[in-house]
Design a protein around this nucleic acid. Structure first.
Lengths: 164, 164
DNA sequence: AACGAACGTTTGTCGCACGAACGAATCTAT
DNA sequence: ATAGATTCGTTCGTGCGACAAACGTTCGTT
């Protein structure tokens, strides 16, 4: 039912299959993201942080204090996993977890000044790492790249959650 | 030390921090790749396959029979994990694992005709999924996107392994 | 014959994403 | 006002992908 020729019995044919692996966008995406993630994870580990820590802190900085469920929506961190993240951040004094007086089911997560400092450090680090990841791209291409990524994320993201 | 303003004590400032989360390319990349991977994984699960199966089969198709270590280099699948992949593929008759007569430490992995058929099916499926992933992009933009990804992969890939 | 290296394999670890279930608190319908 | 459903935080367990360590076997080298 499909187009590509594949019924040639020759085991070593190299004409009809022009480098699938290198041309599958999904695979390219996965591999590049893997490298990026690895660099980010390693870099953050140097500051004893993880990617989720950054997401949580950045979201708090942008949108202010929030309950854990709301933070979960914003950062796309699963509620279950957010617990440990808040634990770790609170342990180091970067956020404060207090019961919401208006609704005692919720906790209100607030970023502390030290948290802001930490976020600032993480931001600087990530900027460096990004520069490394995008090294082979000219400035205009980097904009193009992030623009395309944003479009993809918006398209698929909006169908599941709102914003990011 | 750095440039971005962040020493304002206002908790809900929204000016000096323009949407970090949405603009961090590394994060965009991770999120988009996550969606893509999820779609691919789900799709492949429908054919009882995983991403590694495709990588292994595609590599065999492109470059012919190989030892497991060589396959590992080509597909970037870790030697440890490749064992199970070959087991699963061999169990279903898609590849054959035979000891290399020239070097009895190695196994020679060969794709069978049924393996070719299976790869062909996976190829068709992946094409559909890719079309879904890249849906919001015009054809020219898709080319741009994969071109940028390829450049990134080449730059970072060549420093670790050769080819892909 | 002996040593080091390569290969395949097993086992375990880590990070990330996710689902199930539970107690406590809240909301709603009656 | 009380019963039932819902929300929230939390704990526990699952699965996948990537990876490191270690072991027996086999091969080169000397």
């Amino acid at each position: 039912m499909s187009s590509s020729a594949s019924d040639m019995t020759g085991p070593g044919d190299g004409e009809a299959t022009p480098a699938r692996l290198r041309n599958r966008p999904t695979r390219l995406l996965a591999l590049v993201a893997l490298h990026s993630d690895r660099l980010v994870t390693e870099g953050l580990a140097g500051l004893e942080a993880r990617r989720w820590h950054y997401a949580a802190l950045a979201s708090l900085q942008e949108f202010g204090p929030a309950s854990q469920t709301e933070l979960s929506r914003r950062t796309r961190i699963h509620r279950s996993d957010l617990v440990a993240v808040i634990n770790e951040l609170a342990e180091r004094g970067f956020v404060e977890r207090a019961p919401d007086p208006a609704d005692r089911r919720r906790n209100v997560i607030t970023m502390t000044p030290q948290g802001r400092g930490h976020l600032h450090r993480l931001d600087d680090l990530l900027a460096t790492i990004e520069d490394d990841v995008l090294a082979p791209l000219a400035p205009a291409e980097r904009l193009q790249f992030t623009e395309l990524l944003t479009r993809l994320l918006d398209h698929h993201g909006r169908s599941c959650f709102r914003d990011a």
